[in-house]
C-alpha cells in the first residue's frame, strides 16, 4: 500500500445519494481472478449513458470522487474499493459513508474524507464551473483546500482517527504492519528446526 500524506488532483462530481456497492461494481464482475482490472465494472450500469460524469471528457484524469451522502452502502465486497482504485481514484469525499465500505477503503489505502454536506455542495459547484479546479487533500494537516466558485480560496478541516491516519501515512496494510516486525520473523526463522520439511523438489 502506498503512503498517503497529501494528494492534489482534479475531481468528478457524483450528485447521487445512497450509491451502494452493487452500483459501484455489479456482482457479475466478481468472477475475476484478479484484484486489478475492475475499472471497467465501476458504475457499470451508468457507463452506457454519455452524460454520466465519468464519461464526460472534461472530467477525464480526475483522481478525487466527490460523492453524495451514504456512499458505499450494501454488500461488503472489497471489489468496490478495488474498482475505484483501479479506475484511478485516490480520495472519495462525502458527507456520509457506509461503515463497511469505509473500513475496507481504509484497509486498502483509499482515503475517504467526511465533510459537511454544504461543503460538498461548494466543491460540486466549483468543479462544475471549472473542471480543472485543483483540490488538495492533506492528511497530515487534516484539511481539504480548493478555490470555490466565487474565487475564494477555501480550507476545510476534516476528522480522522489517529490510528487510521498513522497507518495511511505510513502506507501500512496488515501485510505492511507485519513487515515492520520482519526482523522478528527473520529471527524466528533462524530457530526453525532443520528437520522440518521444505517443498524443494524431492531427489528421486
Amino acid at each position: 500500500m502506498d503512503k498517503f500524506i497529501a494528494h492534489s488532483g482534479t475531481a468528478i462530481p457524483l450528485r447521487r445519494s445512497n450509491v451502494d456497492t452493487d452500483q459501484i461494481i455489479p456482482a457479475v464482475y466478481l468472477k475475476r481472478i484478479t484484484k486489478s482490472g475492475f475499472e471497467d465494472g465501476l458504475f457499470a450500469a451508468w457507463r452506457s449513458d454519455p452524460n454520466f460524469e465519468l464519461n464526460q471528457s472534461k472530467y477525464q484524469g480526475a483522481t478525487i470522487l466527490v460523492a453524495g451522502p451514504d456512499f458505499g452502502t450494501g454488500s461488503s465486497r472489497e471489489h468496490a474499493v478495488w474498482a475505484l482504485q483501479n479506475y484511478g481514484f485516490k480520495v472519495v469525499l462525502s458527507s456520509r459513508f457506509a461503515d463497511i465500505f469505509r473500513g475496507n477503503s481504509q484497509k486498502a489505502g483509499l482515503l475517504t474524507v467526511i465533510l459537511a454536506q454544504n461543503e460538498i455542495e461548494d466543491i460540486w459547484l466549483a468543479i462544475e464551473k471549472d473542471s480543472t479546479t485543483q483540490i488538495t487533500v492533506d492528511l497530515n494537516s487534516r484539511n481539504v483546500e480548493f478555490k470555490d466558485a466565487t474565487g475564494n480560496q477555501r480550507k476545510l478541516n476534516f476528522e480522522i482517527d489517529d490510528y487510521t491516519r498513522w497507518r495511511l501515512m505510513e502506507g501500512l496494510d496488515d501485510i505492511g504492519l507485519t513487515f515492520t516486525k520482519i526482523d522478528k520473523v527473520e529471527n524466528f526463522e533462524k530457530s526453525r528446526q532443520g528437520f522440518k520439511p521444505q517443498t524443494i523438489p524431492v531427489k528421486s
Partner: peptide
C-alpha cells in the same frame, strides 16, 4: 484470500 496473501508475503499470520 487476504490471509493467503499475508502468508505468501510474510510466512506469518496475525
Amino acid at each position: 484470500t487476504s490471509e493467503v496473501e499475508h502468508v505468501l508475503a510474510t510466512q506469518t499470520l496475525p
